[in-house]
Amino acid sequence: MELNIHELLTEDTVFLPLEVGTKEEVIARMTEGLKLSGSVTDGVQYVSDVLAREATGSTGIGFGVAIPHGKSAGVVKPGLAVARMAGPTDWDSLDETPVSIVFLIAVPKENVGNEHLQILVALSRKLIHDDFRQSLLDAGSKQEIIDILKNM
């Protein structure tokens, strides 16, 4: 299915590659992209909400993927940022392996139309599948990553 992913994901929010850092650094850098795309208006609030979520349990879901996310008052419209890490990055993952792909999800505190949420839901489901993750790892350009997500 073709999803209207453009509203969620722009070239500003694709990081290819993103330099290795701490979890906090990675989230902060990716948040800058979400601010550029107009999803996040209050970066400080949003990062603190994401980290608060992170504190309740790592969002490193295994298979080298992390999906930090926050439902935050600092978000005006749903947004998605994706980063392929330059090297293995520690994320306290469930399977204790470092992550190489990070999806940062921004959702406004007030519920919005389901359409955008549906995209995030579809993405979450897709991430479980090896071939999907591999295609993200193999992608050579930002546009290629956007295309993969568009056609998921």
Binding site: T59, I61, H69, I105, L120, S124, R125, L127
Partner: peptide, 17 residues
């Protein structure tokens, strides 16, 4: 899951797979 965005659906997909 509390946020109801990611983990809920990943776990569902994982179990189905």
């Amino acid at each position: 899951c509390p946020t109801g965005i990611a983990h809920t659906y990943m776990a569902a997909e994982s179990l189905q797979k």
